[in-house]
Write a protein that binds this DNA or RNA. Sequence first.
DNA 1: GTCTATATTTTGATAGAC
DNA 2: GTCTATCAAAATATAGAC
Lengths: 193, 193
Amino acid sequence: MSARGPYAKGIAKREQILEIALDLFAQKGYDRVSVREIARESGLSQAGLLHHFSTKEELFLEVLRRRDDRDGDPVEHRHIHSVEHLIGAVERNASEPGLVRLFVSMSAESTDEASLAREFFVSRYQWLRDEVATDIRKLQASGEAPESLDPDAVASILIAAADGLQLQWLLDKDTVDMGVLMTTLWDSLRQSH
Amino acid sequence: MSARGPYAKGIAKREQILEIALDLFAQKGYDRVSVREIARESGLSQAGLLHHFSTKEELFLEVLRRRDDRDGDPVEHRHIHSVEHLIGAVERNASEPGLVRLFVSMSAESTDEASLAREFFVSRYQWLRDEVATDIRKLQASGEAPESLDPDAVASILIAAADGLQLQWLLDKDTVDMGVLMTTLWDSLRQSH
DNA sequence: GTCTATATTTTGATAGAC
DNA sequence: GTCTATCAAAATATAGAC
């Protein structure tokens, strides 16, 4: 897939806009960023930006989809999610407060029934719970996790803890160590009977 | 403390505005509610409302403080928070999606460094963690919780799970049973060694 | 305490030139 | 593909009458 051709310039600009929009949405939230501001940071006029994404919401949804892909190799991300990966992602997120804020604020906004992002987050959580629950069943089969655990319940709980700890961490980064706490939780669950 | 006197009318109106603002912020989030809208629902003009709260942010902060008080008896709320209370609050919240949404979206907004609500949530989490950790120490002393648990870590984790489960529940109310999952988590932790 | 009227900004989006 | 110019709608906040 060459980057050359008649569309190369447009595609490159699109990528740049998406990067900048990601950062701005992460910093300030959807409603507090104007298209003008994203355009200015991208070295474009507002109308120039709206040539690439004809509405603000279209740009926003594209940014959301992109966020998932940045969590490491997209292929790996999509196919071998596990408890270990979940904890690893939380640990890595401690170096990316902007991304964490994007996720926290966008997922909160998505709870609005009318939000365009709602569908995105609903299916994302369904998928995530499924991946983690499947991994737990695998660990039970190999004796690495106790049979007493309910895989679906524990999957929900681990994901919930990850989200909640990210929120606490954003508010008090020195007090809350997300990675350590996730490990503590998983160790405790594995040692329950 | 009588409700009579020269200020009775103003105070009553203030209360009414706060109730309505609470509901609207909960439904739509801070940025998507206008002062005009709150005023209209309160039977006032915009200028009439701004006589009671001179800026939108002032009104918002007042609503936030009020939210805490609605979580049951304020006195009890403030003085005997415990693991049991935390789980009970989550269970009760399943009948109040509006309030849950308010909390989720307002806490997410508060992660903005410049947010006026930030200070409110930072101190709220510090206080909550402290209350829950203290309760866990008490349970350990009476033999109702294993000594192997780190009270501060478990407090953070339980609160995080509560927040994260509320988010998942808002997005998929039929699949996620917050109360059951919180109980599952706490039981597992108590049975770990 | 509440109103009408208005100042001032800012927003998302479009039209049309180049 | 990007610009300038512009529109229409909304927002917060204030001034001043009653």
